[in-house]
Design a protein around this nucleic acid. Structure first.
Ligand SMILES: [Zn+2]
Length: 246
DNA sequence: CGTATTTGACCAGCGC
DNA sequence: GCGCTGGTCAAATACG
């Protein structure tokens, strides 16, 4: 009697094991597909960027040909509205130098010692797409050496680096990395909302604390993961359609 | 060999 | 103008 039950249980376990195995394989395959697709997506994005740039430059040249003496209205491009956002990020204890791993590709173009901070400040420019104007400054916090102060400036003229999502799962200690990246994105959003009224350090610190409490809340993390997954699947669907269409 | 980083030179703004 | 400071350039160098 018990033997039958035991056997059936054993069978169930074996069955579940097999299912798990096949699901794991499927998961691996899907991961690989995501990687490939994101790769192609980035390439396509690059092409689109180049094409629009070509078209823009052509339009500008044809436009500038017809510049009579009429106007004198200088097209002062409202550049002053460059969105800057400050982000506090926990420094990885292992990293000796300034971070680079936030999903974009940065080319370092300078490093200076500043008057009011013993640690140097590094200057980066986004190099994911040619002509992307985004820059960032990275400097350790004065009082807490394990806090990195990152200042992003401008908006990317290309698609967001979709491959970062893939990096989450493929990273050896993905929990740490993903926590850091999630927090950084949260901090970006919050600082952008708060940047209009106040700009002192206390609010920034409070933002960081707030983000930390958020990441500790399991419900919030679950909702966030759900949202991220949803956006991912949406992107995948779009990409699949694009792939079928041509 | 092509590309990314390093690092001193260089420049622009500001207070005096 | 002068010196200081934060930001950028670019030649040299390191790296894979
Ligand atoms: Zn960019």
């Amino acid at each position: 009697m018990d033997g039958h039950q035991y056997i059936s249980h054993k069978e169930k376990v074996e069955n579940l094991k097999l299912q798990l195995e096949s699901l794991s394989r499927e998961n691996e395959n899907l991961k690989m597909m995501i990687e490939v697709i994101s790769d192609r997506y980035n390439i396509l994005q690059e092409h689109v960027q180049r094409k629009t740039e070509e078209r823009m430059s052509g339009a500008i040249t044809t436009n500038s040909l017809g510049h009579g003496g009429i106007g004198s209205n200088k097209m002062v491009t409202a550049d002053p509205v460059v969105k800057t956002s400050q982000v506090f990020v926990r420094a990885k204890p292992s990293e000796k130098s300034l971070i680079v791993k936030d999903g974009f590709h940065w080319r370092k173009y300078g490093q200076k010692f500043t008057k009011d901070n013993p640690s140097p400040r590094a200057y980066f420019k986004c190099s994911m797409a040619p002509g992307c104007p985004v820059k960032k400054k990275v400097q350790r916090s004065v009082e807490d050496e394990s806090i990195l102060m990152v200042t992003y400036e401008g908006e990317h003229s290309h698609g967001v680096p979709y491959s970062t999502v893939v990096d989450f799962s493929s990273s050896p200690d993905h929990s740490l990395v993903s926590a850091n990246l999630f927090r950084s994105t949260i901090a970006i959003d919050l600082t952008q909302n708060l940047a209009t009224d106040t700009k002192n350090e206390d609010t920034c610190k409070r933002v960081e604390e707030y983000a930390e409490t958020l990441t500790k809340d399991p419900n919030y993390m679950m909702a966030l993961a759900k949202a991220v997954a949803h956006s991912i699947t949406k992107q995948i669907i779009v990409l699949a359609i694009l792939e079928i269409d041509p």
